[in-house]
Design a protein around this nucleic acid. Structure first.
Lengths: 126, 126
DNA sequence: GAAGCGTATTCCTTGCGGAGAATACGGTTG
DNA sequence: CAACCGTATTCTCCGCAAGGAATACGCTTC
């Protein structure tokens, strides 16, 4: 059952936060580090887990790797991502993640636009 | 996060089927055996897993133990159970379970009514 | 109270996932 | 090409969950 694989991806708090943030749009690994406040290995491994199961896709842009939700998620995935968004409302952890994402956002507008990066500058939102 | 516990319960095919069937109403263990076609140990252990995490409740009636979804599920649980019902539509495994449940149903109307069992008779739907 | 039924709990083995440390990789910059 | 950055992949340890076999439990019946 594909459903089970989806739930396996959802049954870890870190992955839940990653997917919740990704619902806002593509994000690179170092931003995930800043937003979640978790070490790079942890972020990277959970993203690999999600990618291996088709819940996210990735694309390299220079040094950075941008992750995004699939363009055409399956019906099951779509339903569960929507459910997650719904359940996340009111949860302080998820809200804090979004707040941090907003703070960082301006420094990576090019990610959203899909343009190649211009300045080598810092990726971490600071 | 309570959400994670819910997803941990959902990431096994047997438990998914149990919960899906339970959405139709209370069911006793031996009916689960008949409906899912799985051995008693397996059913019983997965039900214990769900009960320990508050996803189901149980009540003894003579020799039988009847399981049911909680009367007042949390918002998260409610949302995810609804999502599961939605995703289950069109899935042959889930459909087959419901079909078997319908066949058995007449033999355990007393379960639904909450009455104590009358005849000792066979519990397995046959 | 002994036998029978339905259900739960051990015990064991197996495999997978999580975490951290160290290291390897690909790409960019001088 | 050397140095550096961002990211990925090892490796090892540990805990938990799944499965099956055997057994224990609670309740009913005779």
């Amino acid at each position: 059952m594909e459903l089970v694989k989806i739930y396996e991806c959802l049954c870890d708090p870190t992955r839940l936060r990653l997917l919740h943030v990704l619902a806002q749009g593509p994000v690179c690994v170092c931003h995930f580090q800043a937003v979640l406040g978790e070490p790079q290995v942890k972020i990277s491994k959970h993203l690999a887990y999600l990618r291996a199961r088709g819940l996210v896709g990735s694309e390299r842009q220079g040094n950075w790797v941008i992750y995004a939700l699939p363009a055409k998620p399956s019906r099951e995935l779509q339903a569960n991502l929507a459910c997650l968004q719904d359940c996340a409302r009111g949860n302080p952890v998820f809200k804090r993640d979004l707040a941090r994402l907003k703070q960082i956002e301006p420094s990576c507008a090019w990610v959203r636009a899909g343009e190649p990066q211009k300045a080598p500058g810092q990726c971490r939102g600071g």
